[in-house]
Simulated assay, not measured.
Amino acid sequence: MTTTGPEADDPLDDVEHRDITVEGQRKVVHVMGRGPAVIVLAEMPGISPHVARFARWVRDAGFTVYMPSLFGRDGAFPRTAEGRAVMQQACVSAEFRAFAANASSPVTRWLRALASLAHGECGGPGVGAIGMCFTGNFALTMMLERAMLAPVLCQPSLPLNSPGGLEISPDDAATVRERLERENLTVLAYRFEGDRFCTAQRFKAYAEALGDRFVPRVLPSSAAHPSPPPFFAEVVGCAHSVVTAHLIDAAGEPTLAARDEILAFFTQRLRGGDGGTPS
């Protein structure tokens, strides 16, 4: 990775840039590493240097990372004006349902097909995925694909207009719950206590939909990095991005412990270990 300063764009020059077509749609997917597949879904406003840093941590833990370009300018440092424009565009895109509860974004069909393709390419028992913010719930909907084994939801924020709403249909949620129970799988989820986009109401709704298969982690807002990039300071305006923009990369920090728990979760699930609830 080549950078020129703390506010530099990330050139993503250590990854393979692939055009992948599934479900009749072509998207750029950044691929790196070796081992079982993990799909890293960027938060708003896109694949920032912090998202890419997390993806490299996943790679270095022994996985092949598939990081699809879903919105924004890949590698861009999250500045306010550009980030706000990306968010506005995504909110009216036909691929996403930013304001619709009880329904999944259409792009999740493409992501489920990507998971199947990645499993075929990488082998192993299955695939992991982590969604963040705007994509936070996508890893759950991807559990409708049988190759998916390890879903992580970081600050799932849709629907934006319903603090207690879920971006998945009740029927699909019931199907996922039945699979989680049948296969002894769990869903890891993270949020900051004071997050106004991913609220306690939303985690309560997930718990009601998934039962004890939903494993929530709530970090104190004081554990967030105090100086995030401008988009997060000025547009998001609260502790939000657990393993990216608000992560503090220092020993003993709750956000770093969350990162380590996620990497251990992927290792447990995707290298043939027991899929039970993390302790």
Rank of each mutant, 00 (worst) to 15 (best):
G164E: 08
N184T: 07
R109N: 14
T175H: 08
S157H: 06
A115D: 09
T108F: 03
Q89K: 11
P163Y: 01
V107I: 15
N102K: 13
L180T: 05
A101T: 11
A129E: 01
P170Q: 06
G123A: 05
R191D: 01
P125M: 11
A100C: 13
A173P: 00
M143V: 11
E181W: 06
S169N: 11
D171F: 12
N102F: 07
L153F: 01
A174S: 13
A103F: 02
H119Q: 13
G123N: 10
A173F: 02
A173S: 08
N161Q: 10
E181K: 10
S162I: 06
C154H: 07
A100F: 05
A118H: 14
R109G: 14
M143N: 05
A174G: 11
N137C: 13
T186Y: 04
G123M: 05
P156R: 01
V127L: 14
F96H: 06
A113C: 10
G165E: 03
L153T: 00
T186Q: 09
S169D: 12
A129Q: 04
L160D: 04
A98K: 01
R177W: 03
N102L: 09
E181C: 05
S116G: 14
L117D: 15
A94E: 15
W110D: 12
G136H: 09
N102D: 15
F96S: 00
G128I: 02
S116L: 12
L180R: 10
C122G: 05
Q89A: 12
R112W: 10
R182E: 12
A98W: 02
G126I: 06
C91A: 08
F138I: 12
A98L: 00
L180F: 02
L144S: 14
P163C: 09
L166F: 03
I168Y: 02
C122R: 11
A150E: 02
R109F: 10
A94N: 13
T108K: 03
T175V: 00
M143H: 08
P156Q: 06
L188E: 05
L153Y: 00
T135D: 09
V176S: 00
T108Y: 01
A150M: 07
M87S: 11
A113T: 07
L149W: 00
L188A: 07
A118M: 13
A147N: 12
S169G: 13
P159W: 04
Y190E: 03
A90H: 06
F138M: 15
W110H: 14
R182C: 06
E181N: 10
A100G: 07
F99S: 06
L144M: 14
C133N: 08
F138P: 09
R109H: 14
